[in-house]
Design a protein around this nucleic acid. Structure first.
Lengths: 235, 235
DNA sequence: CCTACCGATCGGTAGG
DNA sequence: CCTACCGATCGGTAGG
């Protein structure tokens, strides 16, 4: 707690210069991130079961046994990829929400949804975007306890959509039940992993526009337009 | 073309009584369908790479080498599952389209879409519904030539959605570009494989209702309501 | 469709 | 993090 920490080499974490091993994070020159990145790429392209730990080792420039110095099993590697993906996704989502909240004037539910959609496409297709697709498509390869551990983060990610969806539903701009709407919307976006190609076709912004146009009904019952609707023949 | 076909045993296919082997379809008591069904179930639950041909043999009540009497390789088994799934899906889709077309009075684009959506949910979650999910989630496990062969059937299945979507777009009831809308909609439906549970929650009909409510905008520009919108402040 | 089997590969480890 | 290796498993086949 004092300046002594500066002089003594017992600082618990993140010593400058060449990194030191800890019990928690033995990092040895920090090849761990490279392994994770290689694993994410290969798991995404080939699937978990079809990827060998030797493939991953080679992609990271190591020998066949070396990944097991960093991860105690192939399953631990899979879990680490997904966990890292979720933390990164949550961070990106939080940033998107904060940005839309900053401009309180334009912070309508439509804008909030659009930001969430755009952030989700970024997570799926932006740079370094192999981690979350692995989580989406290799969920069944996890061990049971790993699945339950991840579930928390997933619930957190999905919950962030609720306020905007509830508001849109209340104003009649989202016509499906909120819970089903969230499942269908997230599915529509996530499925883009199967067909989206960054190099051709629409941009991520155009994609987000199309998705919002598809889901959000502009003539909600709360709009000024509503008065034109309210007087139905049954009045 | 004449009655002769009834009397003579040279009818090319589907002889009554115990089935006969052909070069094309050696069926030997017809255990092939059982193998396909077992393979579909296991491929869906565990994935292609994580399922062994021994698993499949055991599930069909055979010994480990026997699947290779019916299929020349594990990949051929995978392809057969997907091909069967697509043919079944196309048949169900055609039936749904025919039903909606029969009642020409109520055959609006909305009704057409609703029928397609409902048929798709049936394909994904109805009885014997392991084949199409395998096709959706094990696409990358196919060999290249298998993938190109399946592509024809998939294009056919997806094309059937175009007329309804085009009509809805033209009337302003579908606000996203048709091509992107089809991809997003099919994705939203197909993703339900990940979360839908037949034993709890919504029924397939409720699901179809929610999906249509989400995608289709009831106040299109062609509706009678349109006249209320057309006079925007810029007029 | 079964029996018996082969060659190859794979996750993981010991020991340094 | 490498070397050398083990035990188990897997897709596929011959021969009946």
């Amino acid at each position: 707690m004092t300046d002594a920490a500066i002089a003594t080499p017992i600082e618990p974490k993140r010593a400058r210069g060449r990194p030191r091993k800890t019990v928690d994070e033995r990092d040895d020159g920090n090849r761990r991130p490279e392994l994770l990145k290689a694993a994410a790429l290969l798991f995404r392209r080939q699937g978990f079961a079809a990827t060998t730990t030797r493939d991953i080792a080679a992609a990271a420039g190591m020998q066949s046994g070396s990944p097991f110095y960093h991860f105690k099993s192939k399953h631990a590697l899979l879990y680490a990829v997904m966990e890292e993906g979720m933390h990164s996704a949550l961070a990106r989502q939080a940033a998107a929400i904060e940005v839309s909240a900053r401009d309180s004037k334009a912070n309508t539910p439509q804008v909030q949804l659009r930001c969430l959609v755009r952030a989700h496409f970024d997570v799926l297709h932006g740079p370094g975007s192999d981690f979350i697709p692995v989580m989406l498509y290799e969920h069944r390869s996890l061990l049971v306890r790993q699945r339950t551990a991840l579930a928390q983060l997933q619930v957190q990610y999905e919950s962030a959509w609720s306020p905007a969806l509830e508001a849109l539903h209340a104003s009649g701009q989202l016509r499906a039940p909120v819970k089903l709407a969230r499942l269908l919307i997230l599915g529509a976006l996530s499925w883009s992993v199967q067909w989206f190609d960054r190099k051709k076709g629409a941009s991520l912004d155009e994609l987000a526009d199309a998705a919002c146009a598809l889901f959000v009904n502009p003539c909600g019952t709360d709009q000024e337009l509503r008065s034109n609707f309210a007087r139905s023949p049954t009045d």
